[in-house]
Amino acid sequence: MNAIEVEHISKVYGSRRVLDDISFIVKQESIHGFLGPNGAGKTTTMRIITELAKSSSGTVDIFSNGQKIHKTKLYQHIGFLLEEPPLYKDMTVLEYIRFVAKLRKIPQADIQNCIDYAIDALDLSAVVNRSIENLSKGYKQRVGIAQAIVHRPKILILDEPTVGLDPHSVKEMRNLILNLKKEHTILISSHLLHEMSLICDDITIISSGTILKTGSMASLKKDLANKQEIHLVFKKVNETFYTELKQLELFDSINISDCDEGVLVVLKPKDTGDYRNLLIKKSVELDVELLEISKKEFSLEDLFLEVTESHD
């Protein structure tokens, strides 16, 4: 059973189409990354899932229920933090979490347990009695997540929870989110692609309101590995070397261009194999002077830029 199924969602504001027939699935007990440049439609999608905005067409199915869940029921299942944390800055952390717990109509007998859970999960015990106004941005963000999980929803939706945090806080936030995975299915958007690659099981890339890629992080990593390149720099190359390389039938493309030190050959292997040893042997065998050989791995950033730029 999937936690969230977004099916053919479109959103039109006047004549502007913000989301164009987007579909993706968030599996249960997973962390699903939602990537996209600014203005891609991430927040709009999240607002539609949380019913803070209406879609122009399409449906959102929660827990493969197949029918529209009443708002009251929906918010038992979903907790979210969208954009700025909704904090009452004149309250202490404890007062605020207690207020939200009452607002979510948690039974009186369970309130204390739920508050304790939120405080422990976000490691807020050191600041419970401090006024929210005096907290650092990192802690304010944590309090924002605490309000989202205080009623112990099965799904947690976080929109850019690490934006504006220093690297230390980002690392802390990463560990906290990984801990939250034990109890919640998480849909998270972020610009920090490296961070996403460290915590996400699945990923969806959106640009200009269209889904460009969606799938597991493992398949994405396989795609990335397939996109590796081998760079060779020669003093000069001859026709025989080029023919030999072609005859190997190991490479999708062979590009030869001039560079400062001589000739640069860029090879795109067909599979994930490491052919550097073979290429060194070949160059010795064919007596071409090899100055440099390196393997260029494709990062998530490269893939992100490639798919979003090619779409634009």
Binding site: L52, L82, E83, E84, P85, P86, V100, K105, Q147
Partner: peptide, 13 residues
């Protein structure tokens, strides 16, 4: 202004 209105929107009230 502070976005706290969304707390009510996201609650069973």
């Amino acid at each position: 202004r502070d976005g706290t209105i969304e707390l009510y929107y996201s609650s069973p009230v």
